[in-house]
Write a protein that binds this DNA or RNA. Structure first.
Lengths: 346, 346
DNA sequence: CTCGGCGATGTAATCGATTGCATGGGTAGC
DNA sequence: GCTACCCATGCAATCGATTACATCGCCGAG
């Protein structure tokens, strides 16, 4: 491994000059620069990152933590992060927290030890020590939230308008004539779930006013975004005395579970039960029936979080920015008007 | 940020002693050690990784490259890698190569620059420069292959017995009475696909011998593991003059695509077409019908690759080891005996 | 002709740890 | 009581870059 010393010797200059050629090419004379560059690639030199890091306190690394990397929604966002990061000359340190606070703390410590220049966390949980750090450093804290937006944490974030998106999904169901809708949320500790639930309630209210008394109610169950939870909760809801005619799941994964559950109960989708998911993961269009869902721009969320982080790292961030990216309700075949007999109209 | 100097001063010892307390506690007297440790946590000291890295040439990082992180199979393997790595005190640098050679080279360069102690690559492609490095360093090269096994590359690896697994899947279909089977492979550049195909052929031959002339043939199409490819290729195969009565896809994703395609053609699974997938991703059991598939121990593959890499890094590896982990054919509802009329027996 | 100034380059301190070698005190063996 | 050795610890070189400051030569203005 050639060092900067070797290059300097081979080009007949000092290490300072070599360093300048590589980082501030303008400050060194044309001829010298050429000589140095020749030496650089004849020796195949590339700077030692550890030395550079020690000196500059910059790692060129972004730490990305995610509650569950095997969740396709997150893995698509991460793909976007990786893409944008590597385009900007950063590498990605991956942390799968598995929803465990100790692991969150462990990764938080990495950031505090400056093993990465910044942190992008997907999901809503930020370790306490980092929350303090964010509060202390203000907009300069190199921490960005992806997918979620927690007003309590004063950090930049990239996400969709979850409330609005959920309201649209519900409006779609009400528009089709559904009156009893079951909702399978994510953990309510997450603002994202609460926002969506708020959207759901707002839509229900509007629908109730428009068709006075026609909305019979909302069954709400709290899931954890997994197929298994979707299946279990959908089964419960659909086994109730007056089951909903439509189900809205806060993730496509849960919708997949719900689909399996309703089949298990001998019900058909959308004939007996309409189903709406959330995320539009790659498989949503390939389910049977193809899933109506809220499409999130996953790659774009990833890109945007990186952009926000780089903005902070370059010192240009005056205040946290919360970027709302566009979502889209994708109507496929899993939603339809309820069969007349089923809808016990008020 | 407290440095080792601060700790030394505060404990009234030299930096050498502090360093020894932290890395070779046995070599320092009880009383001194206690004093140093007290100073360490009163100052909240933790060593600067860049400095340590510079001095020791160890990064405590593992680079993991993957052709597509958004593929749930890979993301589950990565989850296993991350888990084992972090348990061993390593962090994971993620590289999504997107099947692009330039990105592979870019990450290969990271390893050569020693930005990570070792590389785990999922998939079959290893950049040329690293292949040379592996050849040159022999078993000492800190490179491990996950999921795949390429005899040409003398590197350690963790994977299942793909040939055997594919043969079992085919035997299952033949055992049910299928005679015309369509196979949707992955890219044949990958040994994994070739191994599975060899298993398929071997099984076909055995079935042919056992039930003389009964096996009418094998339609083989080459996919790329994606839902889209699965859908397109299945559609083609099933539209043939004498379509297969069963399909074997080399990934669950492609099987999902195939499922959608056959429904699109008005066919039912398993009544008209049986379907076997590969991987047993989390969703396989939730499809309609639940998918018969070859289950791979994804987390375990991840763990094992880390174990192999650590073995190399500790200098204990005398020769590359290729670890075969157990797979399991999981029979669910997507496979059944072909309907009599459909099977145009010889 | 001289001096100020600037552009190009070199010198050397510095980042924060690790570690080979030196040192000094204590102990055991004879 | 002396020597030899060992254990605990300190000293200082070192890893490979960056960069503030010093230096040198040259040019143009007065």
């Amino acid at each position: 491994m050639a060092t900067i010393q070797d290059v300097a010797r081979s080009a007949g200059v000092s290490t300072a000059t070599v360093s300048r050629v590589l980082s501030a090419p303008g400050r060194v004379a044309e001829a010298t620069r050429a000589r140095v560059l020749a030496a650089v690639d004849s020796l195949g030199y590339s700077p030692n990152v550890a030395a550079k890091m020690l000196r500059t306190l910059r790692t060129q690394k972004i730490l990305v933590t995610v509650p569950d990397i095997s969740n396709p929604f997150f893995s698509q966002v991460i793909r976007g992060v990786e893409e944008a990061a590597s385009a900007a000359g950063y590498s990605v340190l991956l942390g799968d927290t598995r929803h465990e606070p100790e692991r969150e703390d462990q990764y938080a410590a990495m950031l505090r030890r400056k093993e990465a220049d910044g942190l992008i966390f997907l999901g809503h949980r930020l370790s306490d020590t980092l929350a303090e750090m964010a509060a202390a450093l203000g907009p300069g804290a190199p921490i960005v939230n992806g997918c979620e937006y927690s007003p309590a944490l004063a950090v930049s974030s990239a996400h969709i308008d979850n409330q609005q998106a959920a309201a649209e999904a519900m409006a779609h169901l009400y528009g089709l004539g559904h009156r009893r809708v079951g909702v399978v949320t994510g953990p309510l500790a997450s603002p994202l779930s609460r926002d969506r639930l708020a959207g759901v309630r707002a839509a229900a209210q509007i629908a109730g006013v428009q068709a006075a008394g026609a909305v019979e109610g909302l069954a709400v169950a709290t899931g954890d975004f997994s197929v298994e939870a979707g299946a279990a909760l959908a089964r419960d809801m659909l086994s109730a005395a007056t089951p909903p005619t439509a189900l809205f799941c806060f993730s496509d994964e849960m919708a997949m579970g719900a689909l399996a559950a309703l089949r298990g109960l001998g019900l058909a989708c959308p004939r007996d039960v309409s189903l709406v998911g959330f995320d539009d993961i790659r498989f949503a269009a390939y389910l049977d029936p193809p899933l109506t869902t809220v499409s999130q721009p996953m790659a774009e969320i990833g890109h945007e979080t990186v952009r926000l982080l780089l903005e902070i790292l370059s010192g240009q961030a005056a205040a946290p920015r919360n970027v709302t990216l566009p979502h889209r309700l994708v109507v496929r075949a899993s939603t339809a008007a309820p069969v007349a007999g089923t809808s016990a109209g008020g």
